[in-house]
């Protein structure tokens, strides 16, 4: 795989996906820092791995043969609604308020 070029556009795109807004100087700063880290991380490509095609990280997790635990379908107490709402930065009644969503 060819080397990743971390340009301003890439920083902007990634910040966009992560819902971060960056000032121009910040874009420069992260461009430099991400460049450094990514070029280090790219050494992973030189690892010769011999795990075989069937090996998958997602199915290999946990004790072999075990399945994710399951709980009984029993209702437990919800949070008192005041407690669920009291830390909301903005609310109306018992709903969280956000700027109008455009669909």
């Amino acid at each position: 795989m060819s080397k990743i070029q971390v340009d301003r556009e890439l920083v902007r795109k990634v910040a966009d996906l992560a819902q971060l807004s960056l000032s121009d100087p910040e874009i420069g700063l992260y461009q430099e820092r991400l460049s450094k880290v990514l070029s280090y991380v790219e050494q992973l490509n030189s690892v010769h791995e011999s795990l075989g095609q069937d090996w998958r990280p997602d199915t290999a997790r946990g004790v072999p043969g075990s399945s994710t635990p399951e709980r009984a379908d029993l209702v437990s107490d919800s949070l008192p609604v005041e407690e669920a709402m009291k830390q909301a930065p903005a609310r109306i009644g018992t709903a969280f308020q956000v700027p109008r969503i455009i669909e």
């Binding site: 990634v14 880290v37 290999a60």
Partner: peptide, 25 residues
């Protein structure tokens, strides 16, 4: 941003999948 990048479309295999294989090694 680094984590967002390594999972983003087109880079997942080279970074995230590969890193997990190295983790196993």
């Amino acid at each position: 941003m680094l984590g967002t990048f390594v999972l983003s479309s087109g880079y997942y295999d080279a970074f995230y999948a590969k890193a997990n294989k190295v983790r196993e090694l």
